[in-house]
Design a protein around this nucleic acid. Structure first.
Lengths: 154, 154
DNA sequence: GTCGCAAGGTTCAAATTTGAACTACCAGTC
DNA sequence: GACTGGTAGTTCAAATTTGAACCTTGCGAC
């Protein structure tokens, strides 16, 4: 801490770009989803994760890990989605403590309706802005970053 | 919307990586700053922006633009920082409506104390994980993304 | 001049997020 | 079989965030 290695120009540019892009993209998507589908990005991600899981359901903890939010935050959002009828809770046969969140038919409908607009927004904000080579490099770099941080957390 | 161009494998990897890296890095920094300096990342960023501005002060609106948060959110955080003595509000001579936020001496102290740990965390999460070429590519790509989104917003 | 309208900040209520208890329950040990 | 530590989810209060409504005040058109 006494003699930190400050960031050089490129490093600073990468960091500034990361922070700015992060916030701008998040805001862009949040607004699009809210306006067009009435969902927050978090809620949309919950539906996506469930829809991709076998049986359309996941344990709460698994879901929290994939979403990278706190357990209590997930409890809250799943409750909201349950009230809206997009998700249902089911108890886990093998572990009484366990709870499955399962996407409902209505959840599927909402997700299918929301997906095209969401994908378009993702393209507009990130994908279509970059050349294919840039995109591949981005995927690899950010994959590395994610893997490292996930490993560090455990 | 009727026939959306879905994401191919690379595009999906880039997007998933972006979302995951975004959340993981944010969480990593948030925790480090809170633990070591008692600041949220937003508050830290406010101090950084002010410290980099001429006279250590910025108009509220300018500051909000740089931070990419809502105006009301900024009002709240500046009030918090003001209570803590790290920032002061000053009225703008040329425009009665205007308000400057200015970093105080104590704000400088806190920022100087927090910076090394923050930089170390940034290195750990993002910078030192990537090769220089990757970093340069990342900086350029994310810079492009940010510029486009900023332009689109205005 | 003054009218109309946009800009700068704040305020307010509502929604969300977080971490720290807290309740149950599983699993391995003695 | 009871004890220990750890896991799964929820609940709770506190902090934060957001958008809309709201005052003032600047400014250009007429």
């Amino acid at each position: 801490m006494d003699d930190p290695r400050w960031l050089d120009e490129t490093e600073m540019a990468a960091w500034r770009g990361f922070v700015a892009a992060t916030n701008l993209v998040a805001r862009h998507l949040e607004r699009q989803l809210k306006e067009d589908a009435g969902l927050s990005h978090t809620q949309y991600e919950i539906l996506v994760q469930l829809s991709a899981a076998p049986g359309g359901s996941l344990r709460m903890t698994d879901l929290a890990d994939r979403l990278i939010t706190s357990k209590s935050g997930l409890t809250y959002q799943v409750t909201q989605l349950e009230k809206a009828g997009l998700v249902a809770r089911r108890s886990c046969p093998s572990d009484v403590r366990g709870v499955f969140a399962e996407i409902t038919d209505q959840g599927w409908s909402v997700l299918r309706a929301a997906a095209p607009g969401h994908v378009a927004a993702v393209r507009e904000a990130l994908i279509d802005v970059l050349a294919p080579a840039q995109l591949a490099a981005l995927a690899e770099s950010l994959g590395t970053v994610s893997d490292r941080l996930r490993a560090a957390d455990s």
